[in-house]
Design a protein around this nucleic acid. Structure first.
Lengths: 188, 188
DNA sequence: CCTCCCATGTAATTAGTTACATGATTGC
DNA sequence: GCAATCATGTAACTAATTACATGGGAGG
């Protein structure tokens, strides 16, 4: 149920509408948690009816009206409670690794294109993160010194950067391995 | 629906019972895909009734009888089809990162214990992977040269090792950051 | 005109988690 | 006697995905 908590954190950082949250889940928060707008609207509704969130109708001109959600006191308490209870170190779910092991029973060389595609995507994400880091934390326009919240955002971003760098390097390794084993007959 | 495919790969590598699969999902396959026995039994039943798997009843003495599943021809085809279609590079779901950003609205220092615990778990996983690598691929008892399937298993394991190493290093960074910002009043 | 952006949602389905349930054997 | 391992499952619930649905405004 960490989507609830991710929403609480995001709304504490900045109140906003379901649409805005959905966009954030494609960007900053989305670096370590994903959610679609359908899911977000549903959860917002539930959390609001549970009293964890407040809503305000905001009429707009030239665009549809929107509902701005913000965290109510009980929501803040719920987040604090979650922060104080331990969570399980999560395990990966990595489709591509399943594919790579599965390739032994098919043609490993046929995977090269797919791996190259993933390599491209992760390289782009890395570039994107690095640009954001420069803009928000390490470049000349960034605040200095950073406050606690910014330090925490930065260390999370550094985690994303480390992850993407590691992944790109591993995909290089995978490609080298696929080329090395070359075209082989699938195993029985 | 990658659980289906993970099961197909695992059963191609070695036929086995639901129980055995559940154990593998705590070990080798579990490094990059998780599943509980309940889920596995349900999916096995579905895949068998869809004709993707064959079952054989194996009576045993001194232990409960078991059902040994193996991949049928249509299952092999289904796996091959999946291997040839592109998948989305997956995004992370990282609870701890949510917690770290959330700590800005609570007491960051209270997270130190939790982060240390995660650090311990990931260090242990790293050790465990390295032991397995030595046993199966790089140590004196390992086969040489490796065949294509073993090469692919090894490169996936190297990915797990790289992931754990990266994570441990990042958690060091997180701990240093938490210590640096020290005890602070939560933000508005 | 067409597409993208803003903004909201419902409905149906699939996947995953948690709790409950049984029962023999092996080792301490 | 008690806990762990082997072996199988059902039931209830929660979470996530996919498809469908609407409608105005802005920009090329």
């Amino acid at each position: 149920m960490a989507l609830d908590h991710a929403i609480l954190v995001s709304l504490l950082e900045q109140p906003g509408s379901g649409y805005e949250l959905a966009r954030r889940f494609e960007r900053s928060i989305g670096y370590f948690w994903t959610a679609t707008h359908q899911q977000i609207y549903r959860v917002l509704k539930r959390m609001e009816s549970d009293g964890l969130l407040d809503v305000r109708d905001i009429p707009q001109q030239g665009r549809p009206d929107k509902k701005e959600y913000s965290v109510a006191e009980p929501g803040r308490d719920a987040l604090a409670a979650w922060l104080h209870e331990p969570i399980e170190p999560e395990s990966l779910r990595h489709d591509l690794a399943v594919k790579i092991r599965g390739a032994a029973f098919d043609d490993p060389a046929a995977l090269i294109r797919e791996v190259e595609r993933h390599h491209r995507v992760h390289s782009e994400r890395l570039e994107h993160y690095l640009t954001g880091e420069w803009r928000d934390f390490t470049g000349p326009g960034a605040p200095a010194p950073l406050d606690a919240g910014q330090e925490l955002q930065h260390v999370v971003l550094r985690g994303g950067i480390a992850y993407e760098r590691m992944t790109v390097a591993w995909l290089d390794d995978v490609l080298a391995t696929l080329h090395r084993i070359g075209p082989t007959a699938p195993q029985a």
